[in-house]
Design a protein around this nucleic acid. Structure first.
Length: 271
DNA sequence: CTTTGCACCTGTTGGC
DNA sequence: TGCCAACAGGTGCAAA
């Protein structure tokens, strides 16, 4: 489910309700996530105050005095703030009971998400240390992409979805950004001109920022912590629109498979 | 080293 | 209507 805009929307909407609060208690109903929720997690978290919530790629980090709570939403995860007496439903796997009568609840039907306790500093953790550029930061440029592509030959769409290169760009926004850049998703990274890398970097930033302004994309079940859906699904140009006419050139949007993922593009606009 | 395909899991959808 | 295959927003890992 969630790519950078959805994770960042989640983070921003949690901030006012969670930062500064203590975690009173932790209830793990089903700890069988991507990695097992550590046995000691409730004991570690109990009594900790959340000092800040940060995002690295698609990971959320809840900074506490003695460590960090790391959360990944996987494919179908979501974090919501619910009332203390809200009954737990089928896929509500973990509750963090907060000071002030709210519960931060992790729901994740497919259980590809993760919840781990990291010693400080979190940056050194193996899951975070190899991550690539943050696409909304200044260092993410055409020349950085050009450099990262040196010696590689894979398709540009798969390159953009490689977290060692750039973090937070998933299947929806990779297709959308390449449409915006006018670059065909199958094009090999060894056959992309320097100027096109600049357009790709700019397109990724613009696409993600646009989606952020809309509060992310809700295709099936994304919702931010207050239960609100995103709005970017109404703005997308190609993702999930195969067969429809391109709103720029009128040609039919097409769909193909790259590495077991669907890719959407416009054969008229993308070369 | 890079690239590819599988694996994890549940729910929904579309074709027959 | 029922059944079953294919697919869904991610990503670490083994194999090629």
């Amino acid at each position: 489910m969630p790519e950078l805009p959805e994770v960042e929307t989640t983070r921003r909407r949690l901030l006012p309700h969670v930062v500064g609060r203590r975690i009173r208690d932790v209830v793990v109903r089903n700890g069988a996530l991507r990695w097992p929720v550590p046995r000691e997690l409730p004991r570690r978290l109990r009594g900790e105050r959340v000092e800040a919530i940060r995002r690295r790629g698609k990971y959320l980090l809840f900074d506490c005095a003695h460590g960090h709570l790391l959360v990944h939403l996987g494919m179908s995860g979501r974090l919501t703030l619910v009332a203390a007496d809200a009954p737990a439903r089928t896929h509500d796997h973990v509750d963090l009971r907060l000071e002030g009568d709210k519960v931060l609840r992790l729901t994740d039907p497919r259980r590809f998400g993760a919840m781990l306790w990291l010693p400080r500093p979190a940056e050194g953790h193996v899951l975070l240390s190899g991550l690539g550029l943050e696409p909304l930061e200044r260092a993410f440029t055409g020349s950085a992409l050009h450099k990262a592509a040196k010696g590689r030959r894979l398709a540009v769409k798969q390159f953009l979805m490689d977290g060692r290169v750039v973090t937070g760009v998933g299947n929806i926004y990779a297709s959308e950004a390449l449409f915006r850049a006018g670059v065909h998703p199958v094009r090999g990274v060894d056959r992309i001109a320097r100027a096109s890398w600049d357009r790709i970097a700019r397109a990724v930033k613009e696409t993600l920022n646009h989606a952020l302004e809309e509060g992310g994309t809700t295709l099936r079940d994304f919702a931010s912590p207050d239960g609100r859906a995103g709005g970017y699904q109404h703005k997308r140009m190609v993702y999930g629109r195969d067969g429809e006419a391109c709103s720029v050139c009128g040609r039919r949007i097409r769909c193909l498979r790259q590495g077991q993922r669907s890719t959407f593009y416009c054969p008229g606009c993308q070369k």
